[in-house]
Amino acid sequence: MSTDNPCISCGACCASFTVDFAQQELQSEGGCVPDGLTVTVNDSLARMRGTDHVRPRCAALVGTVGVKASCGIYEWRPAPCREFGLCAPMGRGDEACARARTRHGLAPLD
C-alpha cells in the first residue's frame, strides 16, 4: 500500500461494523487471530472484541479514527477484515466503506 492511501490512516471500518469469523481462525484452533482479542459467539463463530458495542471499536484498532489509525494485528486479522480491505491497495472504498466513513464524519473515498 502506498503511504498516501487513506486506508492507512482511516480506521472507520474498524469502528463501525461487527466482525464475526470462523472459530478455526483463532490461534487456539490453529489459526492466526489472537484469542484474547475475541469473544465467543457460538460453537462455530468468534467475534472481534468491541465490534458489537453500541459504539463499535475493534480491540485491535490502534490510534484515532480519521487521523491516524491502524490494525494492531494486520498480519493476523480475520477473513472478514481481509475481504473488506480488498479495495485498500488502490485507495478507494466501496459502499460499506462510505457508510463507515460517513458515520465518523469523513468524506467517502472517490
Rank of each mutant, 00 (worst) to 15 (best):
L45K: 15
G91T: 04
R55C: 06
N5I: 14
R82L: 09
A98S: 10
P89G: 03
D43A: 14
D20F: 07
F84W: 08
V65H: 00
A69Y: 03
A15S: 15
L86H: 05
P78K: 05
V39I: 14
G31P: 07
A22F: 05
Q23Y: 05
P80D: 09
E75G: 10
R49T: 02
P56N: 08
V19G: 05
G105L: 14
A107Q: 10
D43G: 11
R103C: 01
S2P: 11
T3N: 15
L37T: 01
W76A: 12
D52R: 06
G93C: 05
F84Y: 11
S28L: 02
D52T: 12
T18E: 14
H104Y: 14
A60T: 09
V67S: 06
R92S: 10
C97F: 14
A79F: 03
S9H: 06
T64P: 01
P6T: 01
G50A: 13
D4C: 15
P34N: 04
P78V: 01
E29T: 08
P56E: 03
T51K: 09
E95W: 04
P56M: 00
G63H: 01
I73D: 00
E75Q: 10
S16T: 14
M48N: 04
P34W: 00
S44V: 12
G66V: 03
R77K: 12
F84C: 01
A46T: 06
D43P: 04
D4Y: 12
D110H: 07
L26R: 07
L109I: 00
P80M: 03
G91I: 02
P89E: 03
C97A: 13
R55M: 09
F84H: 15
S70Q: 14
A96I: 08
H53S: 12
L26W: 07
L86V: 14
C10Y: 00
A79W: 06
S9V: 10
V41K: 08
P89F: 08
C58T: 06
G50F: 12
C81T: 00
G72F: 03
A79R: 13
L45D: 15
L45W: 11
H104R: 03
S2C: 08
T3W: 12
V19N: 10
G72C: 02
